[in-house]
């Protein structure tokens, strides 16, 4: 006899209350980062040597700006999911978990805001 309520079984979220959503989000964002990561490496090599104007020219092209924005946003999304796993594994006090998860999200938000502002500014000015 199962002690599970019918509602709980229908929801299918298990004892974690979030089901397998974390697993799926991590895999899908990771899969998206395979082509984006390769594009990123090829792009950085293409900009190695670092002339200021060529960096601006490169990112002011819509496709490059959009791909870079996608790389940044999906990387930070994937980062927060990964950091959550690390924090869940090694931090055992509930308060510590909350503080570190907030710190991880604040870090990701700051990196994302700076990067996206920069890309928009480059597209606007150049």
């Amino acid at each position: 006899m199962s002690l599970e309520t019918p509602l709980h079984r229908v929801e299918g979220l298990g004892s974690s209350h979030s089901g397998v959503s974390h697993f799926w989000r991590e895999r899908v964002s990771g899969a998206a980062l395979i082509p984006l990561g390769i594009w990123f490496a090829v792009s950085i090599l293409g900009l190695a040597g670092g002339h200021y104007v060529s960096v601006l020219t490169f990112f002011s092209r819509p496709l490059n700006g959009i791909l870079m924005a996608a790389f940044v946003v999906i990387s930070l999304y994937h980062l927060v999911l990964g950091l959550q796993m690390v924090i869940d594994d090694y931090v055992h006090s509930p308060g510590g978990k909350v503080v570190l998860m907030l710190a991880a999200r604040a870090f990701a938000l700051a990196c994302g805001a700076l990067s996206l502002y920069a890309l928009l500014e480059i597209a606007r000015v150049f």
Binding site: V55, L56, G112, L114, E121, I122
Partner: peptide
């Protein structure tokens, strides 16, 4: 570091 590089360029 990537954010810093992009921000510096902007």
């Amino acid at each position: 570091v990537l954010a810093w590089w992009l921000f510096a360029a902007a």
